[in-house]
């Protein structure tokens, strides 16, 4: 070339010299090791809070978790009692929310996977993703404006509706994922037999994807069971046991924890820990069971 740089290619150069590590190589290798070490530490640090949290909830909650907590309603001014009103409340509010949210979420997922065009599906999916990101307390305000204000009455149903709104996009996205795993050949076989599209969707696609749908629903339930913010101005909370009075205020476990954590009495704080342990056990159990099973299938 024009620079006329002399060539090395004739004489050739044994690679031995080139393969010897230089100081720069050692520095780079050191940086690399440091990076790997720091990354490992970071990963460990991310798990530490989980461990600390579970440990303390178990430690502080185990003492409070007794028959009273499970069976007695709250008594005034920290005189003991239990979380029965809250437990029964959660057992009503959450399932009702699930019953409302499940069909909507599943149908919406069927629509995007089976019926709609790509663009509509993308739009709806996008809306669902964005909705997952809306702070749940705002959903609470929305439910308050819609279901409490007109009746001048805090009520359990409004709480269920608020939770349902939170659950719908979660159910939809998880359902979608499991429906997409249903092989197209199944659909075609059914359609070829003359089964109409809607029946194919329901009886073939949905049934095949059912376990995935159920898993998604369980995760949504676990999430809703721990939601507090949307219940504050809807279900409101109630010291008394309320069974079936959906038009009336009702307690729930997360509300119970929130309220009792803020009281100056140790007995109430301790009840909050007990309720937290109860809630944590439920949420972790659902997650471990569902994700442990589905994770193997879905994780990349």
């Amino acid at each position: 070339m024009s620079q006329g740089i002399p060539s090395s290619l004739v004489a050739g150069r044994p690679a031995a010299a080139l393969l010897v590590r230089t100081r720069a190589d050692r520095r780079r290798s050191l940086v690399n090791s440091a990076f790997q070490g720091v990354a490992l530490l970071a990963a460990v640090a991310c798990v530490v809070p989980l461990g600390a949290l579970v440990t303390f909830v178990v430690m502080n909650g185990a003492g409070a978790l007794n028959l009273d907590l499970l069976t007695r309603p709250t008594r005034a001014l920290g005189l003991g009692g239990g979380a029965a009103a809250a437990i029964l409340g959660s057992l009503q509010i959450v399932p009702i929310a699930a019953v409302i949210a499940a069909p909507i979420g599943v149908l919406a997922a069927l629509y995007t996977v089976e019926f709609s065009g790509r663009r509509t599906a993308t739009l709806i999916r996008f809306a669902a993703d964005v909705m997952v990101g809306i702070p749940s307390i705002l959903i609470g305000i929305f439910a308050f404006a819609l279901f409490v204000l007109p009746f001048h009455q805090f009520n359990a149903l409004a709480g269920s509706l608020a939770l349902a709104i939170i659950m719908v996009p979660v159910v939809m996205r998880t359902t979608e994922e499991s429906l997409r795993l249903v092989p197209g050949s199944l659909r075609e076989a059914s359609l070829a037999l003359g089964v109409p599209m809607w029946r194919t969707a329901l009886s073939v696609v949905l049934r095949t994807g059912l376990s995935g749908v159920a898993a998604g629903l369980m995760l949504a339930v676990a999430r809703a069971a721990g939601e507090t913010a949307p219940l504050i101005f809807t279900a409101f909370g109630n010291q008394l046991i309320n069974v079936g009075g959906l038009g009336k205020p009702m307690d729930a476990l997360p509300l119970f924890i929130f309220v009792n954590a803020r009281q100056p009495y140790e007995a109430q704080n301790s009840q909050a820990w007990g309720a937290a342990l109860l809630l944590l056990l439920f949420v972790l159990a659902v997650n471990v069971i569902v994700r442990g099973r589905a994770g193997r299938r879905n994780s990349r």
Binding site: S2, P6, V10, L18
Partner: peptide, 25 residues
């Protein structure tokens, strides 16, 4: 491949070729 008359000499004469040693050697 422009003609570069000096090239063959350059190939035989490694004068400008840096020694093969790396820093360590």
């Amino acid at each position: 491949q422009p003609e570069t008359p000096g090239a063959p000499e350059g190939r035989q004469n490694p004068q400008g070729r840096p020694p093969p040693e790396t820093e360590e050697t």
